[in-house]
Amino acid sequence: MLLEIQGLESHYGRVKALKGVDVAVKSGELVALVGANGAGKTTMLRALSGVQSISAGSIRFDGHDITRLPAHKRVHLGIAQVPEGRQVFGPMSVEDNLLMGTYRRRGAKPGDDMERMYDTFPILKTKRKQAAGLLSGGQQQMLAMARALMSNPRLLLLDEPSMGLAPLLVGEIFNAVERLKAQGMTILLVEQNAFQALGIADRGYVMETGDITMADDAQVLLGDERVKAAYLGL
């Protein structure tokens, strides 16, 4: 297992947002975590990247216990998050945003990686001198993904990449995620858009009010009556 989460709990003040979550991700897998708004999906990703405090449970990454490790050290170990709402550095150029992604790689020559990102997301190349804040939502999402990939991660955490995007762009983003998986990237994808997320995932978890209620192969979940009724609107 590359990532193993056991009994994870987290609080916002006195409200328990995660009530003992168990999730595991194998190397090379694309795992989708789906659920309704407020189920705790984003909280879990934030706890994983270290920007949300954890009150109980453990996170193991590649054999290391990282439960208490600060966020910047997790990046060093190879966990990169594409945060909800993209969080690009608005006043900086696209290129500088990408360079910021290599912040933890002292002495690295980011030129090749940058070219690779421009190959994966050609639109970023044409906009590379523009301020990131001026890009459209879809372009910002691609930039946030490219920035995360610049750190050469071993695990990519994607938080609601389709949020607020037009359907056409959502398709484009999911295509990019599939391409990354094909290149061997391990991905944990959090999505409200359960249908599309499970469509490209190997396995899936369904989350409800801070608990994992179902865990199975993505195709099985897609066919499950309860999942269909609750999340797919079928």
Partner: peptide, 10 residues
């Protein structure tokens, strides 16, 4: 501008 963004790039 983006504190979470800054933290997750390390």
């Amino acid at each position: 501008g983006a504190e979470i963004g800054a933290r997750v790039v390390g």
